[in-house]
Amino acid sequence: MVWKKHDYEDIPGSYVFDGKIAHSAYAMNKLFYSFNDESCREEFNADPAAYCDKFGLTDEQKALVVKQDFLGVLRSGANIYYMAKFAIPRGVSVQDAGAAFQGITGDEFREKLLEKREGLEERLKKEGGYWNG
């Protein structure tokens, strides 16, 4: 019984959601998936710890979910799209979660992204053929 190693594990600063992670974090992702249903969101909100037990989370994962530690939840195998169902209604965007990995604020993260726009139109003009208004 061994998880085969993949080359993508060497991509720096990246977590590829594969069978190994999906297997170990199955219960937690299933809990987040249940949030598609409003009645499940309400049931969770009424007693988060009991809801985690219902889905069979490990003690460690349960602690992260109850604390709403979104970064911890991602590090322990939550898929980003499933985590979003937990975080977004609590005012934490996917960008905020990305920022947390780098220890910066969501606003700082968005500023860094905006730098990508600098010089873009000139670059595309040089490239040729791009629509530009």
Binding site: I11, P12, G13, S14, Y15, L74, I80, V94, Q95, A97, G98, A99, F101, Q102, F109, K112, L113, K116, L120, R123, L124, E127
Partner: peptide, 17 residues
């Protein structure tokens, strides 16, 4: 785009083009 991990927020314009 990359949503998670320390490399979150990367955009590679050269590669996209």
């Amino acid at each position: 785009h990359q949503l998670q991990g320390e490399r979150a927020g990367m955009i590679n314009v050269d590669y996209d083009l």
